[in-house]
Amino acid sequence: MKLLAIVAHPDDADIFCGGTLAKHADRGDSIAIAHMTKGEYGGFETTEADIAATREAEARRSGERLGASDVTFLGFPDGRIEYSLENRLSIVETIRAADPDLILTHYRDDMHPDHRITARLVTDAYYMASLPLVESDYGPCDPDNVYFFGKPTSSFEPTVHIDISGYEDRKAAAIGEHESQVAFLEEHGGIDAEFDNLIDGVAAEDATRGKRTGVASAEGYVPLHDRADAFLG
């Protein structure tokens, strides 16, 4: 099986679906992580280029911890991703190049604009990727499903919970590779409560989901199609 996580920023894959990716990698599945941006707005007192270089290196190290065989960066500007046909076709190209069975990405209801736009682009590109007359460097592909992850909101209510018990430390270590971002978020603060202690906050949220579903720790998803729920596990 091939999984493709398309995320807005370095560290998003680790935070939202790191346990799931590591679990599938250990099963022998192919794991790819595509970052829309390099997260160049996530820092203080330096240049965007310097931040981008640091965050790319961190994301590559975290990808190795999770077992990803491919870690890419799509070149969209951090904080400025726009919805357009051109950008949608760019994501079609990304999906076709990976030819995944399953796609993991952001849920549409999210405070961060990059997360919201990424959700729209990926969802619409998912449909277009299978159309033979959509031109690209790769042939059509037809992934089985898209799974959306997100922060707790009024509308994000996961219906699929993946047991990541035993992967908590590996997920925490992957998040910890984003050393510059962990420090930035803790100093930035005030937007999301978990930023006060990012790694512990994510672990607590996973533990809460796990308690609700009878396991030690879990990550939650909303599938685009109910028919393919069983493929992610």
Rank of each mutant, 00 (worst) to 15 (best):
L3I: 15
L3M: 12
A5R: 07
D11P: 03
A13R: 06
F16T: 13
G18D: 00
A25W: 06
D29Q: 07
I31P: 06
M36P: 08
G39R: 00
G42E: 01
G43D: 12
E45V: 10
A49G: 06
A49K: 15
A52Q: 11
A53R: 15
R55A: 06
R60W: 03
G63A: 05
R65Q: 10
S69G: 12
T72L: 10
L74I: 05
L74C: 08
L74N: 09
G75M: 01
G75W: 02
F76G: 00
P77A: 14
G79S: 01
R80C: 02
R80T: 03
S84Q: 08
N87M: 06
R88V: 04
I91P: 07
E93C: 06
I95D: 13
A98R: 10
D99G: 06
D101G: 09
L102T: 00
I103Y: 02
T105I: 10
Y107P: 09
R108H: 14
R108E: 12
H112M: 13
H112R: 12
R116H: 09
T123P: 00
Y126H: 13
Y127P: 06
L131N: 11
D137Y: 10
D137I: 07
C141K: 12
D142E: 14
N145P: 12
F149W: 14
G150Q: 06
K151Q: 10
K151D: 09
G166V: 04
Y167R: 11
E168A: 09
D169K: 14
A173M: 01
A174H: 02
H178V: 02
Q181T: 11
F184A: 11
G190Q: 07
E194Q: 04
A203K: 13
E205C: 01
D206I: 05
R209G: 07
G210E: 10
G214C: 07
V215Y: 05
A218V: 10
A218K: 07
G220M: 10
G220W: 07
A228G: 02
F231C: 08
